[in-house]
Design a protein around this nucleic acid. Structure first.
Lengths: 189, 189
DNA sequence: GCCGGATTAGGTCATGTGTCCTAATTTTGA
DNA sequence: TCAAAATTAGGACACATGACCTAATCCGGC
């Protein structure tokens, strides 16, 4: 209802601002203004800024978990599921060039701030790590699966970082292609 | 003497704090306290916070340029120079696990803040990019050299990010080994 | 001693979080 | 339907913090 709606709207706006401007650099007033509500109303739903952050992180985890589940359902093979993961880079190319990877940039900021929610941000990494590991296991990679999962995660993070540093160059597409090629060699080996 | 020394001390302290806590999260008072001087004295040397940031970035560029030059001098081959670059990850392992890559984390923060010094932070990337490209050219990689340089930069950034996310796992060493192995295949191909 | 750079202690000002309050307005449930 | 509960608006204010500024003092060389 309206109750849920406003709360959800706040989380949505905060999610966007935390991504585009960073957590510390986004104020209550900024979020309230983007939602179009008063500060008083804001505090009715969230007492502290950290509460919003927690809600944002929880939602991000839920959304991504749903997305990953859907990929497993619609993909013909674990390899195809992993290819879907790599293609996030291409689907979100525009935003990554501007703001980097939402997962990595939030984690990096919170880690630098020594913020208590750092662990929550790490959970998003964990979600992908565990999901990827399982896919590699299904591909028959056994003990190497976790290593492969972390490797792919790291590559993705690096691509996102460099894509932000050089947003006008065709770097991201090229690296995404290389990652897909890498996936093929892994599947064959 | 005392005058130069204080200014240099400020830059050193700011460099460290910007790395460990981030730029926005480091205050005038923090830096002054670390140096052991008053805030007023601080203002005598640097009128604005951005001035310190510029000085820090300039020093980082100089230091790294010197380091890269030294590698070229002491290495038997361009391949060995590039291997040196990869080994930064291992030499700075402890700090990377705690605070990430100084180049990447500062750039990411400034980019998110839309800070004017973002360009300066990007220059550090450029320094490595151009240096690596030249080394690959010397290895006879021709047109592919820039692509290889960016690829290696991205891999390094990703490794640093994941190493911070999972600081207790032996991930960094493993990936550094993989990068050195990759360098071998590039040299052969 | 004098002068000027170096340094200090102090204050100003803007901003952002968090608290509290009041008064509408809307929604819900008996 | 009607009263209670939930929601919204709006503002006042305490409090902390941090960037930025000023006046006074220190101190070494001439």
């Amino acid at each position: 209802m309206a109750r849920n709606s406003t709360r959800e709207n706040i989380i949505t706006a905060a999610d966007r601002l935390f991504y585009e401007r960073g957590f510390e650099n986004s104020s209550f007033a900024d979020v309230a203004q983007l939602v179009g509500i008063s500060r008083g109303n804001f505090y009715y739903h969230f007492k502290t800024k950290d509460e919003i952050l927690d809600a944002v992180i929880r939602r991000r985890i839920e959304e991504r978990a749903r997305m990953l589940d859907a990929w497993v359902d619609t993909s013909q093979s674990p390899k195809e599921s992993i290819a879907q993961f790599i293609r996030i880079l291409l689907m979100n190319e525009e935003k990554i060039r501007r703001y980097g990877c939402p997962v990595g940039s939030l984690f990096a900021e919170l880690a630098k701030l020594n913020h208590p929610a750092e662990g929550g941000a790490r959970e998003v990494f964990n979600l992908f790590r565990i999901w990827l590991r399982r896919r590699f296991e299904e591909m028959g990679k056994g003990q190497a699966s976790d290593r492969l999962a972390l490797h792919l995660l790291a590559r993705s993070q690096g691509v996102a970082m460099l894509a932000r540093a050089y947003p006008t160059e065709p770097f991201l597409e090229r690296e995404a292609e290389e990652l897909l090629a890498w996936l093929e060699t892994v599947a064959e080996g």
